[in-house]
Nucleic acid binder design. Structure first.
Lengths: 201, 201
DNA sequence: CCTACCGATCGGTAGG
DNA sequence: CCTACCGATCGGTAGG
């Protein structure tokens, strides 16, 4: 009844959350396949064996991390604001939320975007990710159908490039310095919807 | 004096080019760290040890592949067309050429974009890549300074998002079907410079 | 290019 | 019986 984790009381040990957070940090630095359990142990300040007290194995660590990212994205899909109103407005909302989730769950989404399907865990994550992609792709097509988006570009290609720009955030965004998530989303939407060319150009 | 590679005469064996091409294909499928020399051997139809007849090691295979990508990008930087005229026109030319090189050297650039600096080879490639990034970043700033690009967005952020959209091509482009490199560049430039919003919207 | 291997390290598990 | 690990080692595989 005092503390959930007695070890933490003494300033030692790890809870499931800290193990996951540190592991994902190392995975993103070295790559999942490039990270050994020994490296993970070093980063956690415990022995390699002690990791297995906290988590069934390396792959489950990956699975939990990928769920963090995917659950965030699917919470957005389930939101009523993604389902009512003009398609262009829903698309804008989804893009804004995507940037927010990317920034909020940066290490988890970063890991997700690097998954290539090397295991059952990775394949399952890829399938969930593709499902989210299809959702956004459908939104772009609806926006094109209602005439909100220019007709001279292929909606499927537009979706790809949109994701490219949004997902690239994981490649360079540093929470400590630079733009906030809102500033980031604002600039992104301005460029995407209104273009880069100077209005007086 | 008959054939450069005697093994090839009998319809067997590999030349340095085929070894590199097949290896890069496997690296892109499974990830460099996720690929063992045994897997590579299987893909090449030879034993693991036989690979060392063709190439000094796994890392040199990576180094050669990364050079393919980087040499293409730097040939562009050295071109006079990247150095004269209005910044906006030079930027457009560089973006168009970037798409062309990405498509022409797709597997090599794909590999380059996934490098995280896990070895000296990877760190050297990352540094060359950053040099190219700085070149484009400078172009964007020049275009902003001459007033060709809207003043209400940060040029550094614009550069990041530009690269995000362009580089995402490696994530989904299939040479066999879909748009040509020229169509791709055209759509990309339309969206980036003129925006997604319908001109009548 | 293959057979026969090496030093070391891999992810994961034993008893205490 | 529990939590939170440790030192040592398992069967296999890594790059060479």
């Amino acid at each position: 009844m005092t503390t959930a984790n007695p070890a933490r009381r003494r300033g030692r040990g790890h809870d499931p959350e800290s193990v996951l957070a540190i592991a994902v940090g190392v995975f993103n630095e070295r790559g999942y396949d490039g990270t050994s359990m020994a490296e993970l142990a070093r980063a956690l300040g415990v022995t390699k064996s002690a990791i297995y007290y906290h988590v069934p194995g390396k792959e489950q660590l990956l699975a939990r991390a990928l769920d963090r990212a995917l659950d965030g994205l699917f919470a957005m899909v389930a939101d009523p604001r993604a389902a009512s109103g003009a398609a262009i407005d829903r698309l804008e909302w989804v893009l804004r939320q995507s940037v927010r989730i990317l920034v909020e769950r940066l290490p988890y989404v970063t890991l997700l975007l690097r998954v290539r399907g090397n295991s059952v865990t990775e394949q399952a994550a890829l399938e969930r990710r593709r499902e989210f992609d299809r959702f956004v792709s459908h939104l772009v097509k609806e926006a094109a159908a209602e005439g909100s988006i220019r007709a001279d570009v292929d909606p499927a290609l537009v979706t790809r490039l949109l994701f490219g720009a949004v997902n690239s955030i994981t490649e360079w965004y540093q929470p400590s310095r630079g733009a906030s998530a809102d500033d980031l989303a604002e600039t992104l939407l301005t460029i995407i919807f209104d273009g880069l060319r100077s209005p007086r150009g």
